[in-house]
Simulated scan of single mutants.
Amino acid sequence: MTRQSAAHDLITGLIARTNQLGITRQDLADALGVSICTVNGWYRGAWLPSFARAVAWAQHIGLRLAVVLDGRVCSEGAAIPGDLMQLRRSRGLLQKDVAARGRTRREVIYTRERNRREPGLAMVHDHVTLLGYQLTLLRARQTEAVGV
């Protein structure tokens, strides 16, 4: 499974919940401050939302994005990109270890952990997975992972 398709699985879960609640694409676009064309692109799988937009979408429909290990929530929502370094350290991994897992340079891992720009959903998902965690959707009050 590619990182794009794994991240698309999260979007599929967001779309399913959005549809279940009867929220239209236009209502979703208005709530997230994006155009209907942007939302249509997400629905078609043409592109992925930024991580921040995915978090906002999840919150809008009563879900949350969370980093989970063995059923335990380790980080969630907008805090996840800022927690990447701590998540790596808590697993006892060095940047070079993560780089080797991802077949990339250590500088790439360094940049991801210190990135001040808005990260993409695929990048965050990829990094969390390299660390051995799962990025998943949870219901708003739920503390254990749901299978989405």
Rank of each mutant, 00 (worst) to 15 (best):
C37T: 08
T24P: 02
V67R: 04
D70T: 13
G45R: 01
W42M: 07
V67E: 05
I36W: 01
L48T: 06
L48A: 11
Q20M: 08
L21I: 08
G45D: 05
A46P: 03
T24A: 11
A29S: 11
I36G: 09
I61N: 05
F51A: 01
R64L: 12
G45E: 04
L32A: 03
C37R: 07
P49G: 07
A29R: 02
V68S: 11
A29Y: 06
W57S: 11
L63H: 09
I61W: 01
I23L: 14
I61V: 15
N40K: 09
P49E: 10
L69R: 14
A66K: 02
L65A: 04
S50K: 14
I61E: 10
G22F: 07
A29L: 02
L32F: 01
G33Y: 09
A54K: 02
L28G: 03
A58H: 06
I23T: 11
C37M: 06
L48D: 10
C37L: 07
A56D: 15
R25G: 15
C37P: 01
W42H: 06
D70H: 14
D70W: 08
F51S: 01
G41S: 09
L48C: 07
A58F: 06
I23M: 14
L28C: 04
N40S: 12
G41D: 07
D30P: 00
P49F: 09
R25A: 09
D70A: 15
F51W: 13
L63Q: 12
V34M: 06
V67T: 09
P49S: 09
L21N: 08
D27F: 08
V34K: 11
H60G: 12
D27I: 03
V68P: 00
D70N: 15
G62Q: 01
H60K: 15
T18P: 05
G33L: 05
G62I: 04
L69W: 10
G62D: 07
V34A: 06
V34T: 10
N19D: 15
D27E: 15
A52Q: 11
D30H: 10
Q20H: 11
A58N: 04
A52F: 07
V34W: 09
I61L: 09
P49R: 08
A58I: 10
V68H: 05
D27M: 14
S35I: 00
R25Y: 03
Q20F: 08
I36N: 12
L32C: 02
T18I: 04
Q20Y: 05
A56E: 14
R17G: 13
Y43R: 11
Q59K: 14
I23Y: 01
I61T: 07
L48G: 05
G22T: 04
G33W: 12
V68C: 10
V68M: 14
S50M: 10
D30N: 13
I36K: 13
A31D: 07
